[in-house]
């Protein structure tokens, strides 16, 4: 598996992975709304694909349930479809397809079929898109048996994760892409370092990356973050290290389901203090799941009550001032980690 250069943006990494997969593998196709060049998808992640592979880029009517299901049928008949959902919020239009079809086919058909497909869904706010174009709805699809949920962050190679999700994982995968992250540069570790930070990754198909300002000999807080929250968590960790000499390890899983808890437990061995953050609302969410599992599998590691930082229980506002009030900020994380 080729890794993309450290200076690549998340968008280029994803776009490059799709180009190379479609070039090398005729089973791979892309399906979704407004994908054709020169437009190349709402966030331009599909740019250049339809010109090179006109037969395998299917631009669709506005029918999320329909084309997500079409992709499932194609996957069951030997293709490897990538679905692009324009805004992750629209994934819920295909909720029945995920819940009653795609996630169930393999097991309920007695392992006679697989549904190897990836549904790419741009999630997240902070761009002023308002209540129905800014959400992080992935918590609503966590906990569906048979469905994997993967979320790259700047600490991962997004293109490599996309390739693994499509070609190495026979389960259907919802691939959560944070919109703000598209323009960010991927940070890859060299010799266990990312710049001044110390970094380590688990060796899974979907690795968890942990970064710290100290070489993993001591930590004050374990801060679990995924997707777009990883950068905010890293900013909070930097602030706390330089202003207050607190060592915050940021643990960034790339697979939300299934979730490998071991890197979280490893960090808690050092810190004993758990903070979990997410950009969506807290109730029945990812943080709740992490805290529940840590309580069950690593209770003795906890020296303090775990905390979670998430969006407040409002729709996401259009205007910046309200949006900022509703979403979790660096200051919220700094407070929670103290």
């Amino acid at each position: 598996m080729s890794s993309t250069p450290a200076t690549t943006t998340v968008l280029k990494s994803l776009n490059g992975a799709m180009h190379s997969m479609m070039e090398a593998d005729e089973r791979v196709l892309l399906i979704g709304e407004d994908l054709l060049d020169p437009y190349g998808g709402a966030f331009k992640v599909a740019r250049g694909l339809s010109e090179r592979f006109p037969e395998r880029v299917l631009t669709t009517p506005i029918s999320e349930a329909g084309f997500v299901g079409v992709a499932a049928g194609m996957a069951m008949r030997g293709m490897r479809p990538i679905v692009e959902i324009m805004f992750g919020d629209f994934l819920m239009l295909a909720a029945d397809q995920l819940l009653n079809h795609i996630s169930k086919y393999r097991w309920m058909y007695n392992d006679q079929v697989h549904v190897p497909m990836v549904i790419r869904a741009p999630m997240g706010a902070r761009r002023g898109y308002g209540p129905t174009h800014s959400q992080s709805v992935e918590k609503h699809i966590l906990g569906m048996p048979g469905l994997h949920v993967v979320a790259p962050s700047v600490l991962h190679d997004a293109g490599a994760l996309l390739r693994a999700a499509l070609l190495d994982d026979l389960s259907p995968v919802v691939f959560v892409e944070n919109k703000l992250m598209y323009a960010r540069r991927q940070l890859s570790a060299e010799g266990g370092r990312i710049g001044e930070l110390y970094a380590r990754s688990s060796s899974d198909r979907y690795p968890t990356t942990t970064v710290s300002w100290e070489p993993f000999d001591h930590a004050d807080v374990t801060l679990v973050a995924y997707g777009g929250m990883v950068e905010i968590a890293m900013e909070a960790a930097e602030t706390l290290f330089f202003d207050e000499e607190l060592v915050v390890e940021v643990v960034a899983p790339s697979s939300l389901q299934p979730l490998d808890l071991q890197p979280v437990l490893d960090s808690l061995q050092r810190s004993g203090k758990l903070v979990v953050c997410e950009e969506g609302t807290a109730g029945a969410g990812f943080g709740a799941e992490v805290i529940s599992r840590v309580s069950a599998e690593g209770f003795s590691l906890l020296k303090a009550a775990p905390k979670r930082v998430a969006a407040r229980d409002y729709p996401i506002a259009n205007t910046r001032s309200l949006e900022d009030m509703i979403l979790p900020q660096v200051a919220d994380l700094v407070r929670a980690c103290r």
Binding site: A65, G66, F67, V68, G69, V70, A71, A72, G73, M74, A75, M76, R77, G78, M79, P81, Q97, H101
Partner: peptide, 10 residues
């Protein structure tokens, strides 16, 4: 119906 449409398309 979307699944079987996708199957036929494949």
């Amino acid at each position: 119906m979307p699944t079987v449409t996708g199957m036929a398309l494949a």
